[in-house]
C-alpha cells in the first residue's frame, strides 16, 4: 500500500527457558499509523493462516498502564521513544528499510517462558515481602484525619506511578530491580500511613530482592531513562537512605 513502510524484523524465538533461542526474520510492509504490537498481530494472523505457530508476546491494556507488554527493541526496553510502553510505540518512528531487532527482557530473575514472554513474578514476590500497609478492611480513620502536604502526596504519586513492567531490570546492565523496589518503598515512606512499618518493609523487600537473583545497582541510571513512567532515581537514593536508617536504628535482628 502507498504510504506504507517496509521493515525487516529480527524476532527472538525460544521454545522455553531450557532451550537455546535465535532470531527469525520477517519482512513486513506496514502502515506507519500501525502500532508496533498491531504489526506483530498482523504477522501472527498471517502465520496462523499458514498453520504456523504465532510469535508469543504479551500485552493487555495497550494504553501503557497495565505493564504487561515489554519488548526490547533495538536494544532498548519499550523501544527508542522515552516514557512510553511498547504498546504505545507506533511504526512512524521507524524508517523505511530499517532492520528492527526484537528481543525479550533478559535477566536471570526473568526466565524466558516462550519467545518474547518472560516470567516477571519475581517482582510480585518482592511486593509480597512488604510492599503494603498492614491495615485490615474497616476500622481505619477518616480519610481526612491525617493531612498530608500536597507536595509530599504528589511525590508519593510520582513513585506510585510504577506499572511493574520490569523495564528497569531489562535496561540495567546489572539486571537490578532497585528502581522498582525503590518506587514502592518511597511511596510508602513518604506517606504517613506507611511509617509504622517502614523499617521492616525496606529490610524485608531488599532481602527478597537479593535472594531472587537480581543484580546490584551501580548507579548507571539506565533504568530512569527507560522507565515508561519516568520514575526518578531519587527514589533509589531514598531507598538507600531508608535501608541505612533501618539497619542502624532498628533493634530487630531478624533481617
Amino acid at each position: 500500500m502507498s504510504g506504507n513502510i517496509n521493515v525487516l524484523l529480527k524476532i527472538w524465538h525460544q521454545k522455553n527457558a531450557n532451550t537455546k533461542g535465535g532470531f527469525v526474520d520477517y519482512k513486513v510492509n506496514v502502515s506507519p499509523d500501525s502500532s508496533f504490537l498491531e504489526m506483530l498481530d498482523e504477522i501472527n494472523n498471517d502465520l496462523e493462516r499458514k498453520g504456523e505457530d504465532p510469535i508469543v508476546f504479551e500485552s493487555d491494556c495497550r494504553e501503557g498502564i497495565c505493564g504487561t507488554c515489554g519488548l526490547v527493541i533495538n536494544g532498548e526496553p519499550h523501544g527508542p521513544l522515552r516514557k512510553i510502553a511498547t504498546c504505545q510505540l507506533h511504526m512512524r518512528n521507524f524508517k523505511d528499510g530499517e532492520t528492527i531487532w526484537v528481543e525479550p527482557f533478559r535477566a536471570k530473575a526473568f526466565p524466558v517462558i516462550k519467545d518474547l514472554m518472560v516470567d516477571r513474578t519475581a517482582l510480585d514476590k518482592i511486593l509480597q515481602a512488604g510492599g503494603y500497609v498492614s491495615v485490615n478492611t474497616g476500622g481505619v480513620p477518616d480519610a481526612n484525619a491525617i493531612p498530608i502536604s500536597k507536595d509530599l502526596s504528589s511525590e508519593a504519586f510520582d513513585a506510585a506511578a510504577c506499572i511493574g513492567c520490569g523495564a528497569c531490570v531489562a535496561s540495567c546492565k546489572n539486571a537490578s530491580a532497585m528502581l522498582f523496589v525503590s518506587a514502592k518503598v518511597s511511596q510508602l515512606a513518604l506517606l504517613p500511613q506507611g511509617h509504622p512499618e517502614r523499617s521492616k518493609r525496606v529490610q524485608a523487600m531488599v532481602m527478597v530482592m537479593d535472594e531472587l537473583g537480581f543484580g546490584s545497582c551501580t548507579n548507571t541510571y539506565a533504568c530512569e531513562a527507560e522507565c515508561p513512567k519516568g520514575i526518578s532515581i531519587t527514589n533509589i537514593a531514598r531507598l538507600n537512605r531508608e535501608f541505612f536508617n533501618a539497619k542502624f536504628k532498628s533493634s530487630v535482628l531478624e533481617y
Binding site: Y132, V133, G138, V140, A143, N144, I148, A160, Q187, Q193
Partner: peptide
C-alpha cells in the same frame, strides 16, 4: 465513604489540596 477511608489508609496517593486534605 468507607472506600475512600480504606484506600487512604493503604497509602493510595489521592490528589490533595494545599491544606493537606483530599
Amino acid at each position: 465513604n468507607n472506600i475512600i477511608d480504606q484506600c487512604v489508609a493503604q497509602g493510595v496517593p489521592f490528589a490533595r489540596d494545599y491544606g493537606g486534605v483530599l
